[in-house]
Every structure is written in structure tokens, then in C-alpha cells.
Nucleic acid binder design. Sequence first.
DNA 1: GTGGTCTAGACCACG
DNA 2: GTGGTCTAGACCACT
Lengths: 131, 131, 131, 131
Amino acid sequence: MLIRIELSDSRPIYQQIVDEVRRALVLGTASPEDPLPSVRALAAELRVNPNTVQQAYRELERAGLIYTRRGQGTFLAAPSGPSERDLLLRDVVERAIRDARRFGFEPHELAEAVLRAAELDSSSPSTAGVP
Amino acid sequence: MLIRIELSDSRPIYQQIVDEVRRALVLGTASPEDPLPSVRALAAELRVNPNTVQQAYRELERAGLIYTRRGQGTFLAAPSGPSERDLLLRDVVERAIRDARRFGFEPHELAEAVLRAAELDSSSPSTAGVP
Amino acid sequence: MLIRIELSDSRPIYQQIVDEVRRALVLGTASPEDPLPSVRALAAELRVNPNTVQQAYRELERAGLIYTRRGQGTFLAAPSGPSERDLLLRDVVERAIRDARRFGFEPHELAEAVLRAAELDSSSPSTAGVP
Amino acid sequence: MLIRIELSDSRPIYQQIVDEVRRALVLGTASPEDPLPSVRALAAELRVNPNTVQQAYRELERAGLIYTRRGQGTFLAAPSGPSERDLLLRDVVERAIRDARRFGFEPHELAEAVLRAAELDSSSPSTAGVP
DNA sequence: GTGGTCTAGACCACG
DNA sequence: GTGGTCTAGACCACT
């Protein structure tokens, strides 16, 4: 299970870790029952304090995405309820619409602008290094 | 020039003020050379710390959207370059695409999801009080 | 808003703080919009590390029981959904029944035992120093 | 003597083993002088670390529920004092009352809630797989 | 070894 | 002043 963070990212580190795990779930990179790196191991790998990793894991556990077996480690939980994928996309869309409205744009204007951007994007693909 | 803030909004207050000014520009509610309320007046009206208003005006000045005439007050600047409206929409779209990509969604998936949401929205309009 | 902890209690300190706030809500000791003590103030009062208080507040916020206004402090949220009181009692009952079943007791046996204990209790009231 | 554990249970494994033995005593599934499985055998059967079984047996011995004959193995002790069954039920009740009080519920409220739950339960019996 | 909790002390954004 | 995040280092329970 690969987890990467970006110190230059404005999101808190623990949030980046949370997002990375959700991402792995959405992409199918990781499967239920897969073990996550141990708190200490991931902290060492990311050169980050164990507490920071711990906080990320705590939030993931509270969200029901992972669970821990005492003394054994942390594992991906079996999914339940609406797919995490759908939830995530819904959140992104809702935020975008709210942001757009704030400046007087109607959702359909936003939709068109995203479409245009999506087309541009498909010509020059793979915008590596997404911040 | 009407500026409203919402204490329950998750954005910092100074950011809300900035956004309100940009919004007024985009919507045409305010025009270049219109005076803004003085820092003290706005702070009093919004029941907010003057430092907070000051910070908002500082950001707006840095962005070239307002300027100060010494001893006279603060005024909306004349637009220059691409319209503020376009800039704002572009920002919103870029952010949405970045967020989506973070979880493995391609821009075209985002565009479709926004489209669906926009259609739903047109049936039940006027989602007042956007938080 | 009075918050007390007991170092000899087996629950983690942050959990005790969480429970104290829920308790105050249930008892009506505190009302929505009431300010909570600041993180630093409560930490000093309880002679506990600010991080510990912070963790408690974070959990309460996630549960929707409190909210924070940037730079102003933390406040009790307006209740929503089924009353916190009902939720809490349900949790206690479910746990008791589960514990009882684990040793072969049927719920009605548990109910009778609790009744007997409740009667005993009403004769010699106020079992001070509940741990 | 049958002992089962559940990895998904939140109780520590050693505690689950302890509870299983007490349960067997209470239910009459096992009788005084019955031999317990050897530490190694049980550890192998449960696919658990021998240290974990050892810790469970240590606690049981401390509680006087089992005893060791050197070179022969471990055996259930003869009951003494108030029946283990009563002790267990008392513990469960005390805990429930303490938890309830913590949130301002009086024991009689708890008793009523347990009664209601018990009635609900008798209609839809056999809540298999209690976690 | 694992995760869970806590302390001490720091820096940041916001008001 | 407020809360939010992070580091460093410690001790504990469990396997």
C-alpha cells in the first residue's frame, strides 16, 4: 500500500494520509483486509512524527474505512454503505457548485466550464505531479 | 456597496469579505471608482475586528482589485486583463479538477457529475443561504 | 460549564472530557451557543496537556456537538437528530445486554437485576464519588 | 472444554479467553476438576500467541477459578463463596449503573430501558453472533 | 513487534 | 487572545 505526501501541499499532513488511503480504496489499488503500514513504519518512511500518522489512522478508523487488531496492526475494512467512490465525487461536486454560486455562477455554467477544461485536458494528458 | 458575512461559514472572515467584493465586481453590483466603506465603518457594521477588515483590503489591493487614495479612502479599481469573472470561474474549475484527480477521477467524470447535479438543481432552484 | 476528570478513572482523559460535555448537554447544565472553556484554559484547569483537551474537542466537533469560530473559541452546537440523551441511554443498555449475554444471561434476567439494584439504591441514595 | 474467540471482538483476546472459561462455569458446560487445554494446545487451536493464552490462565488462577497441578496441567477449581454466576451478573449491573450515572441517568431509568429492550428482544430472539 | 495515550513545547492562521 | 498542526519523546496494553 503506497502512501505519498507532499510537504508543499496546503492540506495538513494527516489529512493527506487520510486522502491517500481513500484514494487507494477508490482506485482499487488496495483491497479490504490489506494491512496498512504500521504507524511507526509509515512515520519513518514519510519522515513524519508517529503522532501525525496516528491521527490519520484514528480518523480513518472513525470513518469505518480501516480497523485495528490489537498488537497486530491496522487493516482496510470491508466497504459498507454507498461506495466511497461515489461519496468522494459527490463531495467534490458539491464544493465546486458552492464555490461557483458564491460568485454568481449557475451550476450549468460551471458544468460547461468543466467540460471545456476536460476536453483541453484529454489532448494534453497525464498532468503529472498534481499538487 | 453591500458586504455580508456569515459567522457560521467555514471560510475565514477576511476571506469572506474578499469574496464579497469580487462577487460585487463580477455581478456588476459595484462599478470601478466606487468607494468601499472605510475599514472602521465596515468593521463596526460587521461587528468584526478592524484588523480583519484590514487584512481583507490588503489582499484585495495586492490583487489589484481596489486601490487607496491617501486621505480619501479606498476605491474599486478599473478592471484590467482578462475579466475577473473569467478568472474566478477558472479558479473554481481548476480546484475541482485537482480535487477530483486526487481521488482518481478523470476530468470528464467530474464534468458529467456536475452536469447531472446542474440538472437536478434547475428543477429545485434557489438554494438560498449557501453556507 | 464545569468539566471534571478523574485521573484514577480507566477511561482516557480525552474521553472523560468528551463524556463530561455530553453529560452537560444531557443534564441541561449547558445550552447551545454556550462557550466552552478555551483549550488552553481547560488544560490549565485540569492540569493536563493542551493537546489532550484538543483531542477531546476535535472528537466532539466531529460528532457535531460543538463547533468552533476561528479565533473566538468553541461553542456548544444546537442539537439535531434524535436527542443525545436517548442515544446515550441506548448505548449503555446495549452494552449491558451484550455483556450479560456473553455469560449466558437473558435480557430479562439483567432487567430484573437492575431493578433490584435500583430499589436498593433508592433507599441509600447519592452514592457520591461515582468513578 | 470449548473455547472460542472472535478477532473482530473489541475485547483483548486474553480477556475473551477468560470470559469463555467463566461462561462455561456459569452455564455448567464444564465442571470442577475438568482439565483445561494446555497453553500450547489452546494457542495452536486458536492460532494465537502462547503468551496470550498464558496471560488468560494467569488471570483465571489469580481469580481462583482454575489451578495448576505441576506436571499434570491446569484444572477448573471447585467453586467457593458466592456463585460465580451471581458475581458476574452483579459486575454487569454495576457497570451499567455506573455508565448510566455518568450521563445523569438514575438507576430506575436504566432499569426501565433495559426492560423495554428485553421485551423487544423476546419477540425477535436469538441475536446470533453477538460481537 | 503492534496501536493508544499523554506530556512538553513549538509555530501557524485568525480575530 | 483563539484553535490547528506538528515534533520529540515517553509509557502503557496487547500479541
